[in-house]
Amino acid sequence: MHKKVTFRGFALPVALLLPQLVVTAIFFLWPAGQALYQSVLRQDAFGLRTTYVGLANFERLFSDPLYLNSFQVTVVFSLAVTFLGLAIALLLATMADRVIKGASGYKTLLIMPYAVAPAVAGVLWWFLFNPSIGLFAHTLRALGIDWNHLLNGDQALILVVIAAVWKQISYNFLFFLAGLQAIPRSLVEAAAIDGAGPMKRFWTIVFPLLSPTAFFLLVVNVTYAFFDTFQIIHATTSGGPGQSTTILVYKVYSDGFVGLDLGSSAAQSVVLMAIVIVLTFVQFRYIERRVQY
């Protein structure tokens, strides 16, 4: 963890750290402190007076049906995005791990969506499912499903899940593939000699050895679903119809910038920060463990 050979001095290292620390203090710590501070204040209707209200903003938040609904939407959305993203990527990675011909070609094509901005990914799928001209909307209508994500909240949620999963497959795929390639061939071969078929080998040998990678990806994907998918929702459904695609991070934005409810938005920021801190802590604990083994 530490270097044995170091340089002496105090002014120099501080000067070297200064740019990073100044930016962090001004644009990270100060705003986070402001969010904490504002979360215990309430402004009157004209923004003229602010009063200290203690935890009232939080109490109001957790008794607000719209907020609780948004929590529910976030949980459903994150579970769907995480599960589908991991399952599809794992399937593709196990297939790609054993392919001899064209392996690098597949890999190149499959990592492409990583480069696409979530907002752009959202718009691409938005177009495919456009109720009047979208290809998939037409196909679904031919199959007897009346697709209109502008009116049907469940369908809107399905749409943003698809776009979010599509965007995240590449990332999961790369990590699963790296994990698979780190598994010693001799283990799998020994099992094959003992007569275990491909499915049995996968579930009893490969999958358990892959679990550290899977766990790491689980945390990353939950974080992705909670925060990075903001772009997709903002560029396409804008949280609607109704509140059906308003995930927590979108609500912070819409209550703060559109609704101008500072106290509530700040309280929501604090709740979200708590969630990130828990997620980061879990991730860090796990990283430390993996480094030490």
Binding site: T24, F28, W30, P31, A32, Q34, A35, Q38, F227, D228, F230, V249, V252, Y253, G256, F257, L262, S265, A266, S269, L272, M273, V276, I277, T280
Partner: peptide
């Protein structure tokens, strides 16, 4: 800073 994505503290 890892723990504070822009979206979370957007208004301040």
């Amino acid at each position: 800073t890892l723990m504070l994505p822009v979206e979370v503290r957007i208004l301040p």
